[in-house]
Structures are given as structure tokens and as C-alpha cells.
Amino acid sequence: MTNVKLRDLPVRDMGTLFGLVLIFATFAFVSPIFMESRNLVNILQQSSINACIAIGMTLIIISGGIDLSVGPVAALSAVISASMLAAGVPPWIGMLAGLAVGISCGVVNGVLIAYGGLQPFIVTLGTLSIYRALALIYTGGNPVLNIPSEFRSWFGNSLAGLPMPVIIVCIVSALAWVLLRKTPIGEYLLAVGGNEEAARIAGVPVALTKVTAYAISGGLASLAAMIVVARLGAAEPILGNLWELEAIAAAAIGGASLLGGKGGIVGTLLGAIILGAMRNGLTLLNVQAFYQLLATGLVILLAMLVDRLTRGRA
């Protein structure tokens, strides 16, 4: 286990990796600058926000749920954190406050689902509106400006040639991988998503497991929000529009089943990079945004079809 080799990857992740290589090869063929290291770093950076959200989404999807409220959660924590920062609060306190807002939003989702017995789709559809409304009401619809440069520089730096957001996502991914593969919570997530009633009878703390997943998703949404706020130097209450769909797409391309019980961190990361590389490559080729949207949709459907056709082999 210490020495992870390519052939140790699950078959499904190999498939996603193959798709990624195919997309890279295509773009490398038609665009000379696509494979330049500066552009590759760009792709990683552009994928990092979605990857961050998608990791939380993957944990929830594995547990048999869904979180539609990630965008508004990000917006709400962004505006609260940003207004504290703008008011001169020490940056690390402002950041922790933002994360706390995100985690709290996730806990509210989780409690309504696990203890209220409501369906995840409906609960997070409701809180999607509520959290967005709170962000808009709190700011009066205006962006929060004057983010201190100290805070901005935390996320703006590079380390060993990699931008900070990429490094953060790497750390988050590693932690999430350990959580999923090496801790009881990870097994509980798979069990709850695979057969909730059987998991309950086996003594799995079902409600606690679900709340944990939604709390993590909320926390990661606010972490992504911090990265965006630092980059833009402002927090918009409309931040994070349609993030949930991008994240679900990344998880699904990576092999997570919306029925629950199946999915992985490696696959989701590859899925996020596939989406990021697509967008990057098509922009380099000066393809219109409308067609980029079309291409994204086709890639998602293609991935699902390949998934369906190869199922049962693994």
C-alpha cells in the first residue's frame, strides 16, 4: 500500500484518466501552447475552485445525498467574512468566521435531512434560496470591497511553482482521501449510501454520518469562497452561481453514483480537471462560450454512457 502504482488504481479511475489523457492529447495536437507548463498550471488553478466544491459533493453523493446549496453557502460565508475583513478584523479571524458560517450552513442542511427526515434534494433546494437571500439581504445586493492585501496575499502566493489554491486543493484532497479510505466515517458514508437501513441495523450512526458529510461540504464551499474573495479582492453576494452543477458533473464524470454508495476522491479530481481542461482548451482555440457549454454537456453525457457500457466488468 505504501507504493501506489498506476495499475493499483480502480478500473473506473483508469477510465477517467484515459478520458483526461485523450482530451489533453487532442488539445495538444490542435493548440501549440496548450501543453506549455504555464498553461497546465493555469488549468489546475482554474479547476481548483470546482475541485474543492466537488470533493465535498462527492462525500455527500457517496452517502446517497446531494447538496444544491454550495454556491449560496459560499456566497454567504464570503460576504460575512469579507465585511469583517473590511472592518479591520485580523484576517485569520475573518477567515475562520467564514469557514464557521459555511460549516454551520452545512450542519443546518444535514440536520434537516438526517433528523428532519426530509429529502436532500428538497432541503438543499430550499436552503439554496435561503442562503442566497441571506447573502443578498446582508449586503443589500452590493459587493463587499476593501479586502486587506494581507489576506489576499495568503491565497495569491505560489509555492514551488504551484499557485496557493492548487496546493490547498491538494491538501484537502489528501485529507478527504484519508477520511474516505482510512477512517470509520468513510466506511459509514459508503454504507449509508449503499443501503441505509442495513447500515442502521449494523449499528452505523446514520444521522451523524450524514451531518458530517454536509458540514464538510459547507466548510469546503466557504474555503472555495475565501479563495475567490482573495483573488477578486471583493465578495459578491451572487458568487457561486451554478457551482453545484459543476461539482456534481465532476463527481459524476469521476464515477460517483447519484444513487449513493459509490465514488472516489481521485475520480472526482480527474473529473474536475477534465472540465477545467475542456474550458481552457476551447478558450485557447477561441471557441465561443455557447459552444463551450455545449461541449461540457456532451462530455458529461459521453462519460455516463461509457460508464454504463463498461459497468459490470469491474
Binding site: Y188, A199, G203, V204
Partner: peptide
Amino acid sequence: REGIIPLMSILSNVGLPTLN
């Protein structure tokens, strides 16, 4: 319906209640 978690391995299914 109440016993197995179909997609999980024998190991995971057996270990589930005693993971802690």
C-alpha cells in the same frame, strides 16, 4: 433490504459495526 451493503466488500460488510 436490511442486511447487506451490496456494493461493499465482505471485509467492509463484516467490519462495519466494529470499526471503532
